[in-house]
Design a protein around this nucleic acid. Structure first.
Length: 487
RNA sequence: GGGGGUGUAGCUCAGCCUGGUAGAGCACCGCCCUUUUAAGGCGAUGGCCGAAGGUUCGAAUCCUUCCACCCUCACCA
């Protein structure tokens, strides 16, 4: 670093500003690569800019590669073309510097497309050396691979690891595709609802708590958008969605991040079968437009996204995989039976929780191909509408792919009296020490009293979806700046 | 919280079993080199061996504790 400071001073002594204001590019490197033949034949003088990622200095000439977004190109400059002053500058360049070049194209003896520079401009001097990564024919030496450092120093990661950059480019593509799908194909309105909420709800999770000074009150970072989006449906919107961050104050692991991106959508006059169809359309479309294929590998498992996906009842799945019957069971009996399967059981758990644990232990990991698990016990779903054929169940589904939950949806409960009863039950659980149960949101109940039409709702974990479509096996690989322990 | 792994130069890693006072390649620095591409040649610099304690004449190496990260199980949507 000291050496680069000295070079910086020498550059200033040459009368060159190492941090100029702008540079006039005629092409990006990607454009040059695309139109190379044409530009070569026409001998057109072009100007490009980028960061030096390799440098081979020889007495009176030099080769280097520069990187401009995803594209790299070789550049060549020699002393008798550049002149004395610029050659002095060239000798002071380092890997990591950002430069601009103007010149014409040619092909080297070894056949590499190259720009021969007539002039050279330093655009930004690098003062902190980058890790020295070398590459030949797809093989990489000295790869900068420490996962922790990659998460902590994403700037370097993005420069040095092209696969890291490409994950985030794909992430953006997926999100654009999703917006396009909801906005243009399905007629949804994108909305923005509060992140700072006086009460939290819409999921079972511990919230982050913060404090507003002039209001003199605590506020919570939202754990879900649900209760606000339903207010909008009650307010007369037919279809709304929000794709934004939720915050949950819980454990961090490869599938969970304390701040994560969630898409929630609500459609009036529809039920949960609408949402299953919606998910099938969406995934089919993402496969076609982002992956270019219906088949992918995630976590070592081959997955086929071709719809339709099986729609299997939770009760049937549990019976099939474990032999346990869960409908109309006495709590204690069920608990005993689950224990015999080798699952630890907390005596405080109710029937709903027991079923949930049994399901996640024994069934979830086996749902590799896309599968809708439908019709959950009512205890697990305080915001879902009772099943039209069986009051012990609700009309709810979760979509599992690769053994992980990707989406969660129900026919939304819109009976304000029933909703109040269920929320008060949650509040009791909360009072009894379950800090994941939600408090009663009177304002939300008031919206239901005004009247929310029959509605289908869906929540989708965007980070997990991106993991699936990019083959990443940790949520940190798809979040640019993941939450980490303090160093 | 349990189990496993890792921590040595800016980067990638060897050395640890079998203690003797730290090594390679690349990067960085100097010199040479006008079609190179993991450029090459010659030379130089670089480390509180994750932290603290212990055993020992002597510890990167053996022991204890701690810290961080990764994997895994548990907890957790």
């Amino acid at each position: 670093m000291q050496a680069r400071r000295i070079k910086l001073e020498k550059i200033k002594e040459l009368g060159i500003n190492p941090f100029p204001y702008s540079y006039d590019r005629s092409h990006t490197v990607e454009e040059v690569k695309e139109k190379f033949e044409k530009l070569l034949v026409a001998e057109i003088s072009i100007s490009i800019a980028g960061r030096i990622i390799s440098l081979r200095l020889m007495g009176k000439a030099a080769f280097a590669h520069i990187q401009d977004e995803d594209a790299t190109i070789q550049i060549y400059f020699k002393r008798d073309v550049l002149g004395d002053k610029l050659w002095k500058l060239a000798k002071l360049l380092d890997i990591g510097d950002i430069i601009g070049l103007k010149g014409t194209l040619f092909i080297t003896r070894t056949g590499e497309k190259t720009l021969q520079a007539d002039t050279l401009a330093l655009l930004t001097k690098n003062l902190r050396p980058l890790p020295s990564v070398k590459e030949k024919e797809g093989q990489v030496w000295n790869k900068w691979a420490d996962k922790e450092e990659r998460y902590r120093q994403r700037t370097i990661d993005l420069i040095v690891n092209s696969d890291s950059r490409s994950v985030f480019v794909t992430r953006n593509k997926i999100i654009r595709e999703i917006r396009n799908f909801f906005d243009n194909d399905k007629g949804f309105t994108e909305v923005v609802t509060p992140i700072l909420q006086p009460l939290y709800g819409g999921a079972s999770a511990r919230p982050f708590t913060t404090h507003h000074h002039s209001l003199k009150r605590d506020l919570y970072l939202r754990i879900a958008d649900e209760l606000y989006l339903k207010r909008l449906i009650a307010g007369g919107f037919n279809r709304v969605y929000e794709m934004a961050k939720d915050f949950r104050n819980e454990g961090i692991d490869r599938m969970h991040s304390p701040e994560f991106t969630m898409l929630e959508c609500y459609a009036a006059y529809e039920d949960y079968t609408f949402c299953m169809n919606l998910m099938e359309y969406l995934l089919e479309r993402l496969a076609a437009n982002v992956l270019d294929s219906n088949k992918l590998v995630w976590d070592g498992k081959d997955i086929d996204l071709t719809p339709p996906y099986p729609r299997l009842k939770m009760t049937d799945l549990i019976r099939e995989k474990t032999g346990v019957e869960i409908i109309n069971r006495d709590r204690d009996e069920l608990s005993e039976e689950i224990k015999t399967l080798g699952i630890e059981v907390d005596p405080k758990w109710g029937t709903g929780k027991l079923i949930d644990v049994l399901f996640s232990e024994k069934v979830e990991p086996e749902l590799i191909q896309p599968t809708f698990v439908i019709d959950y016990p009512v205890e697990l779903s305080p915001l879902a509408k009772p099943h039209r054929d069986n009051p012990a169940l609700v009309e709810r589904f979760e979509l599992f792919i690769g053994g992980h939950e990707i989406a969660n949806s129900f026919s939304e409960l819109n009976d304000p009296l029933e909703q109040r009863r269920r929320l008060e039950e949650q509040a009791k659980l909360r009072a009894a020490g379950d800090d994941e149960a939600s408090p009663v949101d009177e304002d939300f109940l008031q919206a239901l009293e005004i009247g929310m039409p029959p509605t289908a709702g869906l929540g989708m974990g965007i980070d997990r979806l991106v993991m699936l479509l990019t083959g990443c096996d940790s949520i940190r690989d798809v979040i640019l700046f993941p939450t980490l322990r303090e160093k």
